[in-house]
Nucleic acid binder design. Sequence first.
RNA 1: CGCGGGGUAGAGCAGUUGGCAGCUCGCCAGGCCCAUAACCUGGAGGCCGUGAGUUCGAAUCUCACCCCCGCAA
Length: 315
Amino acid sequence: MKNDNAKCKIIFIGTSDFGLPAFQALLNDQNFSIVLAITQPDKPVGRKQIITASPIKVAAEKNNITVLQPEHIMDIREKIALLKPDLMIVAAYAQLIPEQILNIPKFGCLNLHASLLPKYRGSSVIQKAILNGDEQTGLSIIKMDKGLDTGPIIAQITEKIKPQDTAESLHDRLAALGADFLADTVKQYLAGQLIPQPQNNQLASFARSLKKSDGLIDWSKPARELERFVRAMWSWPVAWTWWQGKQMKISSVQSEPIEINSYKPGKTFKYNNGLAVQCGKDALIVKTMQLEGKNQMTSEEFLRGHKDFMGSVLG
RNA sequence: CGCGGGGUAGAGCAGUUGGCAGCUCGCCAGGCCCAUAACCUGGAGGCCGUGAGUUCGAAUCUCACCCCCGCAA
């Protein structure tokens, strides 16, 4: 039986639920001792603006792990140093960590990242992979340096992107894969079995974080591209368009575009009893949608109550 | 008290000078057809979110409350 002194002392840094399975795996592993969790401050969420703790904070408290939530992580540099951590692990923290912090742990600082680096550094990396029509993406664990997702790669695994994958479904799958992947990789890393490989900066690309407005559909783009766009924007910010001065979310479309180019982009028309929208090249069949103020529903249901919709122009 | 839309048949929606509750789809029964998600005939299905108030009379006007949703964060 190992005592706590023999365990690897880890500080876990993360905010969103992407890092949750990995965090949980570390907590459950007898080889590790999580001495501190660092996460973003509680923030108002939802229509009622209820102050809500991050998923990482909730999980940490459930496991009696101390939680710190500094505005800036530099504010707690001293506290981190006093703990003399062996390793720090970062997963979806949403804040750049300065070198002075990265240098504190004996074995440095590892980051679990949701793409195959150097492709897609940054934050909206899962969306980007779907948007670009990639066949596969994956997880990378890198040893962090002062740059944003620029550190040398320690381990990677790939994951196929399914034709029906949304950013949400792919996110959940990658997050789940992160559990064993991280725990195993950390052990091998501590055992000195993994050698960090520098990233090829020539191949690097960057995915900036998304805003609500990034979900606005440009109907002049090809249908094939917009189909990926709808999946990439789900479940946030969601692909949306304008109709009669109101926002309308397009939550899902049929995967195969139809080869019709008879209308102006954004024009709606009937196709096999379904609702089709003309795009820049070919057209898309809308499966489910949501008008602001209303619930999400199938296009069939929507059309029942909106006889004037068919034939209008969106966007 | 952040801003705004909404709650009417199983579903989606109409319905305010207050006056018998409607449409499309679905469902049930029957008919037509070689056949059908097509078409024809008939039918069932409503505490109009809840509670008060105004009125001869309220889905409709007034007040309070509950619930759903969009924005914002």
